[in-house]
């Protein structure tokens, strides 16, 4: 199922990556090349196979409920592109 230009735009927007109109055809070609190639998996019968999420052979470990972190606003904000006092700042969000 080859991607249409509109789909490329929709994915790029979902991923919050601006794509110039001029770049759409090239990107469309590359993505379709990759998707067409991974399409080979469709040939396999995976009926009844349990999906494997990861390679770790364990269950989740639980940590104790104790406050061990925080209280470091200067470190948290040290790399902020924009801040006001102890807040991060972004362009106004309209809800």
């Amino acid at each position: 199922m080859p991607l249409a230009p509109a789909t490329v735009r929709r994915i790029a927007h979902l991923a919050r990556i601006h794509i110039a109109d001029d770049d759409i055809p090239r990107l469309q070609g590359e993505l379709n090349g990759i998707l067409g190639w991974v399409e080979q998996l469709a040939a396999l019968d995976v009926e009844g196979v349990q999906p494997l999420t990861g390679a770790a052979r364990m269950a989740l470990r639980l940590r104790d409920d104790a406050v061990t972190e925080g209280g470091i606003p200067e470190k948290i904000l040290a790399n902020a592109p924009e801040r006001a006092g102890d807040y991060f700042v972004v362009p106004k969000v309209v809800e």
Binding site: D65, A66, E69, P73, Y87
Partner: peptide
């Protein structure tokens, strides 16, 4: 109700100064 956050060791109490109860995991 818990002392620390779900996936980090930062505190959960209400009303702290901004970004004072934040770990690198939370951010």
């Amino acid at each position: 109700i818990s002392e620390a956050k779900l996936f980090s060791g930062a505190a959960t109490s209400f009303g702290a100064a901004p970004n004072h109860q934040v770990s690198f995991v939370d951010a």
